[in-house]
Write a protein that binds this DNA or RNA. Sequence first.
DNA 1: CGAGTCGGTTGCTTGACGCAACCTTGTGTG
DNA 2: CACACAAGGTTGCGTCAAGCAACCGACTCG
Lengths: 162, 162
Amino acid sequence: MLRHDYPDQVCSIAKALEVVGERWTLLIVRDVMNGNRRFGELQRGLGVARNVLSARLQRLVEEDILERRAYQSSPERYEYFLTEKGLDLWPALVALLAWGDRHSPEPDGPPMLIVHKECGGAVSDRGVCELCGETLHARDARALPGPGVKPHKPSMAATANN
Amino acid sequence: MLRHDYPDQVCSIAKALEVVGERWTLLIVRDVMNGNRRFGELQRGLGVARNVLSARLQRLVEEDILERRAYQSSPERYEYFLTEKGLDLWPALVALLAWGDRHSPEPDGPPMLIVHKECGGAVSDRGVCELCGETLHARDARALPGPGVKPHKPSMAATANN
DNA sequence: CGAGTCGGTTGCTTGACGCAACCTTGTGTG
DNA sequence: CACACAAGGTTGCGTCAAGCAACCGACTCG
């Protein structure tokens, strides 16, 4: 994505896409939601160029979608966590995931499942638990590897905690 | 966005973004949903470069998200309509719209409102009517200019029919 | 004391995007 | 009949973001 702004667009969809519409950004948010918090983890998991990942993380921190916290000093090492604003992207991610599952299905089934932590029910494209009917948020759900998953990427199974 | 694919990513979010994650694509879908069906309308409304719009429309037709229909011949002129697959992006657009509204609010209120056609109720970030509680789809809702709207872009008020 | 880890940065190359000009088929205007 | 204009693109070119590999500083481990 070149210039990441959409001038002359007053719509909130456009404003949202100015931030999260850049290449890799939404996938970074997804990975952090799934528990990949460190630069190296994200880089290996996504296969994104390191300089691009660096730029995205910086932008996401600036936009208050991620928070950078040191988890050790000397040398300083950092982890990235989702803020409330970042966690709030969950419904959009769930909607995109459901769309992808519906319209370009894997032969063996979806590679990633979202389930309600509390009752284990599947989560609908609207982020609603299909078992108990509750409207869920990021912290209420968990990602699991689905039947269509290929090997090597266990990170998908992690929990969305902050 | 450079190469629009995300190799090594088996997740359905990544697959969805391979198609609709390109710059302009989701805004084109939004505009078509709002009744802008022609090349010139889309180009003027979005301010996108004509060659890029051309490429996006072609890709969207290939991906079965849009359908290209002639509305006259000699000279042949075309309109673009959403397929079921395209209409099915509605929940994702609504989620992004709601996120944008919540986290980068306009001083005068949201520039675009989504309402349930049948009862006029506001639509939540999950695409659910807040008045009657129904879970909605693209055809059940309509976009209206909101209080924060600036002049010149009446197209937002059009109806989502196919 | 050399290799590896972590979290980046730097420099170079590639290719998507923005812009303006042009094209084709047709209508309307003097 | 010439000319302007509309619609729906296509073409060519310059620029800037993305991809890639190499490097760096601080520290640990064998």
